[in-house]
Design a protein around this nucleic acid. Sequence first.
DNA 1: CTGTTAGCGCTTTCAC
DNA 2: GTGAAAGCGCTAACAG
Lengths: 336, 336
Amino acid sequence: MTVTLRDVARAADVSVATASRALAGSSLINQATQKHVVQVAAAIGYRTNTVARALKTRKSRLIGLTVHNLENASFRVLASVVQARMQALGYQVILSISNDDAEQEREIFKTLVDHSVDGLIAVPTGSNGAQLLAMEHADTPVICAVRRVTGASLESILAADMEGAYTGTQHLLGLGHRRIGLIVGPLDTTSGKERLAGYTRAMQEAGLTVDPALIHRGRYLPETGVTGGNALLSLATPPTAIFVANHESSVGVLRVVSERGLSIPSDLSLLFYEDSPWFEWQRPAISVVDSGAADMANLAVDRLMSRLGGVANSGREYRIGSRLVERASCRALPAS
Amino acid sequence: MTVTLRDVARAADVSVATASRALAGSSLINQATQKHVVQVAAAIGYRTNTVARALKTRKSRLIGLTVHNLENASFRVLASVVQARMQALGYQVILSISNDDAEQEREIFKTLVDHSVDGLIAVPTGSNGAQLLAMEHADTPVICAVRRVTGASLESILAADMEGAYTGTQHLLGLGHRRIGLIVGPLDTTSGKERLAGYTRAMQEAGLTVDPALIHRGRYLPETGVTGGNALLSLATPPTAIFVANHESSVGVLRVVSERGLSIPSDLSLLFYEDSPWFEWQRPAISVVDSGAADMANLAVDRLMSRLGGVANSGREYRIGSRLVERASCRALPAS
DNA sequence: CTGTTAGCGCTTTCAC
DNA sequence: GTGAAAGCGCTAACAG
């Protein structure tokens, strides 16, 4: 039925060992035999059985990729980029979705190990560091992306959230805004904490006292945008600009703005965090602090590949700088 | 290093065969030994080597999933649902992205076969039917989802596009609209053809002659929404409603509407095809013809599982009925 | 019910 | 440069 290396060997009149070497492109082999074997193999339609090879070499050419979901634009970009690049490098990726649930993630990691993935790129929930460390000890490189695990010495590729929020806030400040609202994620996540810190720092450096009423924190959900937007806009002195530093809530904020009949940017300036294709199709196009998902994905792949190539775990944290993308949703305030 | 079945056998003082049977939950085994082996296995931290098992049984417990991209909401839902359900069923999914490119798809299928996936759920480009058929002949079940391959007798799970477009158009007609614009995908895709057919049928049944100027067809891209929207809205007698039956162009249409300062639904009624989470967050919330991506995904999994269970290829085409989701973007026209 | 044994298809010493 | 042979870890006859 299936044509095996044996068949190739027989057809090319060499031993299986030679056939294997020829196909693997081993150096210690006669050029002529090499060519011949390769030709014969192609002729009879031979394809390496990766399972058998994996059993022997303990290399599956499979890597795991776990993300919280596929709705968040950053995770989606991560999935696309990792998939495309790893495939080009001869690896297949097993995608798993954790729903940001520690329990599910635990199961996923176990199964991935069972399938003997050669490596793992994970957006971790943060709760299964021990398991990840165990994988590292079992010589399976793990790269954390977007999120990290505190206390575990794993290579992590993160966004420079503090710096990004600082840059974004500064941009708004530079435009003359003084009352700047912030909608941010939970403060028990690194990104939530750091984005708030960046905002705070920029405000303080500008000599402004941070008004707690201008800060709304909530879950990574569209609803947060609605409650946050309404809360901020209902203030006695509402903000002249809102920095939406919680990607998922963007759509909720847009809804509130539209319901209140506010026009952007004349009534309110809006700055989002993490770019999404449709932000630029929006009218006015939304300015964003792009956290660089594609670059994070690329670096994650680069790091994984070098780990796969034998480089030791640096335990290092890499930060991808944020980038301000000015579009049309922020206006300069006339000097008053 | 790694603990094998041998170790379990030794530790439990039975043969490898018995250990294997105990772990596999074979029927022909003593309850007591069974329990004992399982306990010992857990105690020494045994985990089945799926690669070795796959080599022996020719079942990898891996399935392939190919989609054009992760941006289209339907593909995303397909990926999420298939991943979650297959995982729960003890399978892992290898995700590949074809970019709707026949060449890339060809490579993907080859690699998937190399990794001996047990089955495949594919959103096919349509150009590699022979390869898919070859997989079927090699006893690897293939289920096509969302798109199909003409001329190949493969099980396909499709949306009832003709019916959906018919329903959507009828809805608009029922609201009193007579000049209904249609923005649709390429006519060399099944969905493009069928959606146009559904629209045409509804119009004709209402006794209306179809004005070709009201039909804009274009690629599955946001740009199409811009050119299409502008073309339709620039007509001497512009439509009172636009049926955007090309998911990707939705965002482009919204942009045109906003640029022209049109208000929905008073100036123009809008009906989209294929639901997306953010459509309901939009203000006004967008009415849609939901093509049922989640249901397609579920059925695809069901079909794959029964094929995996030994059921023969029915070669059948399954259609998931569309559903009209009325929100707030279509208004009834006053009888004139 | 349990043990012995023969591979699945491949890579890789180790001899020649 | 090439071949023979030994498994990787597991399952599935086949005996007992």
